[in-house]
Design a protein around this nucleic acid. Structure first.
Lengths: 343, 343
DNA sequence: GTGAAAGCGCTAACAT
DNA sequence: ATGTTAGCGCTTTCAC
């Protein structure tokens, strides 16, 4: 049979010989319904295939059970994992995420606010990879009072609940490993200055050097944009500077892999000539030549925790005042770094 | 100031000294409003910062302007691109996508149907990578009459509007290239049998061989699951069979890269000993050693076209009866395949 | 061109 | 434990 009209709460009530109120109570798991009535109504609901209309419920209760996921680029591995985790937790709590990527149209900064207010989204997960530029807008959202949690993106101008990975620790461990292998001239390809994750990893790098009594050489640091190509050109820049180094810490696996290509083209061998540590543990990291030593981030967990907090804040407002959750990274040892043979 | 109560259509009407109908008419761009009234109302809307409540609109008009995106895994590169494209087109038409990944909980097949009916989604984009298992369920959705478009996923049991890439052509071109380089013993790592894309690429492979008067050797074909690891083990299997081959067509870049690692470990050089062609043109493809020759798929366009059709079907039902759109692939030449030096 | 009335399907606040 | 009365904020008739 073709798409039947939807069954409404009225029909259920009529069939059960009760008022729609009683049905509504059963639907909302209220205690004040007699067991028999409840049982009977449940059976009728089942038999009629009744599904409550979420739109009507939303209007009447002012609860849309809808979350927004603002993100910059679904092609980003980090974000994807976050989304996966977020989606799962949301579903488990019977919330659903609406998509709001900011990328597709330039200058649509205000557009997603419109989306959010119009659709009466109850909370926002801000999972942007990009920094800068949106700060004022985000701040406005924070001030508006709508629950908002950020996945690894902090604001300088405003307190914000952030779930992130301990990037300082990650940067420290990556560098530390290289130092333990006897390296003292350690180059770094960092992420963009606008990212807190990039500056944090830099901090980790710096403090590892310092702890080992090593000095840092600005000539050994180049900035990339996280992606392959930028790692490639960053390494070319580094090589052109002709400052000796025997190790590289790239703040993303993609940049590490890009850099490795540049080194190959310059006849530099990894790890014999240059040891490399990346960051992210991309699926491909284990399959490049040589398999990449890297820092794994629990990205899925970031999404899960963020959503958990978001829902908590929605259901008990005020419960999470600007928490900051830092998840730990994991060091993944592979073959791209080895003892310093050069000095 | 703290989060003000929302402005409603009533306040706009009152402020303008008209009835809410008139405001509603302006909102819905109806022609039957005098220019002055319209202008005046528009200004008041602007001044008051009025945003129509999409939930209320949805209830009254029975149009939610909401689409569902059913997908298996946001970590998949292919899907991500599709999502990006889909999202853009949806936004341009003022629709929004709800997320419905099927992965997070096992056996939640019926769960997303519930989600869809309850939320009164107007159309579904089915962008699953995985085949099999869900067919009966999907068929039920198709029969329910809700507009449904699939991104590269066909159903054997049921006609379905599908936007896909021409996998036969892609498989043909990949193989053809290898043949033109003088290869005749061409191994293939294919995707899972349950994927039409895998069997289509196989068809292309077969017909290229046939066109060249070459025979196919079943011992040269191994199945993987699209991912790196499976390419790695598939190549080990291939090598263990000790059947000579000088070229490899891997149905995904990931499997190609996995296979390349296995070859490295077996001291086989690419492309000198074995030429390789992949499929997908992952961002990493240009940066592995050697840079991978591959088939690029217009995935973003798949998402865009699918959403376009979906919206069209929603707005003019019956307009797209089970179309099948096939987008063309692009051959990307890099360094992983070269002339056959071996025979 | 504009307005009044009647819902959309449900929940909330009182009743009883 | 259950029913009644009001809406939620908007669109849809159908008047004028």
């Amino acid at each position: 049979m073709a798409s039947k009209k939807h069954v409404t709460i009225w029909q259920v009530a009529e069939e059960a010989g009760v008022s729609i109120q009683t049905v509504s109570r059963v639907l909302n798991q209220r205690p004040d319904v007699s067991p028999e009535t409840r049982q009977n109504i449940l059976e009728i609901i089942e038999r009629l295939g009744y599904q409550p209309n979420a739109v009507a419920r939303g209007l009447a209760s002012r609860r849309s059970r809808t979350l927004a996921l603002i993100t910059a680029d679904f092609g980003d591995y980090f974000l994807n994992q976050v989304v996966n985790g977020a989606e799962c937790v949301a579903r488990a709590h019977d919330y659903i995420y609406m998509l709001g990527s900011t990328d597709c149209r330039p200058g649509n900064e205000p557009e997603y606010t419109r989306l959010l207010t119009e659709r009466h989204v109850e909370g926002i997960l801000f999972a942007r990879a990009h920094g800068g530029a949106y700060e004022s807008h985000l701040a406005k959202l924070v001030r508006s009072g709508i629950p908002l949690v950020s996945a690894s993106f902090s604001l300088n101008t405003m307190p914000l609940t952030v779930i992130d990975v301990d990037n300082v620790e990650g940067g420290f461990n990556a560098t530390q490993c290289l130092i333990e292998h006897g390296h003292s001239r350690i180059a770094m390809i960092k992420g963009p200055e606008t990212f807190k994750s990039a500056t944090d990893r830099l901090k980790g790098y710096l403090s590892a050097l310092q702890a080992a009594g090593l000095s840092m050489d600005p000539a050994l640091i180049v900035e990339g944009d996280w992606y392959y190509e930028s790692g490639y050109t960053a390494m070319q820049t580094l090589l052109a500077r002709r400052q000796p180094f025997t190790a590289l810490f790239a703040q993303s696996d993609a940049m590490a892999i890009g850099a490795m290509r540049a080194m190959r083209e310059a006849s530099l061998r990894v790890p014999q000539d240059v040891s490399v540590v990346g960051y992210d543990d991309l699926p491909v990291a284990a399959f490049v030549d040589p398999p990449l030593t890297t820092i794994r981030q629990p990205m899925r967990e970031v999404g899960e925790t963020a959503t958990q907090l978001l829902i908590q804040e929605i259901e008990e407002p005020g419960s999470i005042q600007t928490k900051e959750v830092l998840l730990r990274t994991e060091f993944i040892h592979r073959n791209s770094c080895t003892d310093n043979m050069n000095y």
